[in-house]
């Protein structure tokens, strides 16, 4: 059985990030856009932790990932609040309905 190394984790991170990016671009539902962002943050975390595991001189990568988790939680809270607010105004969570700043 071929061995699993840093390359495999990085490729998995790239795939998860690309899926998140595609989801963010393709979907028009604000909730799913938010989940796609979470997906991308998760992929970045995975890459950070994998790099740290295969270059284990200190714990910088893991702690960076810890901060990213905290920021993701904050972002989810504020993002969901904005979505709820948008829903109250427009009775919809479509990102195309949030066109008030279009000039």
């Amino acid at each position: 059985m071929p061995d699993v190394g840093l390359n495999h984790y990085l490729l998995l991170g790239v795939m998860l990030f690309s899926l998140g990016a595609v989801g963010f671009v393709v979907r028009r539902n604000a909730l799913i856009s938010l989940m796609s962002i979470e997906l991308m943050l998760n992929a970045a975390n995975l890459v950070l932790v994998a790099f740290n595991r295969y270059h284990p001189v200190d714990h910088t990568g893991q702690i960076f990932a810890l901060f990213v988790v905290a920021i993701a939680a904050a972002e989810a809270a504020v993002g969901l609040a904005i979505i709820v607010s948008l829903y109250r105004l427009r009775r919809s969570v479509g990102t195309d309905d949030a066109d008030g700043m279009k000039g």
């Binding site: 904005i82 607010s85 948008l86 105004l89 427009r90 309905d97 949030a98 008030g100």
Partner: peptide, 8 residues
């Protein structure tokens, strides 16, 4: 803040 996003 919510209104700016959605145009109200």
């Amino acid at each position: 803040a919510g209104g700016a996003l959605s145009g109200a």
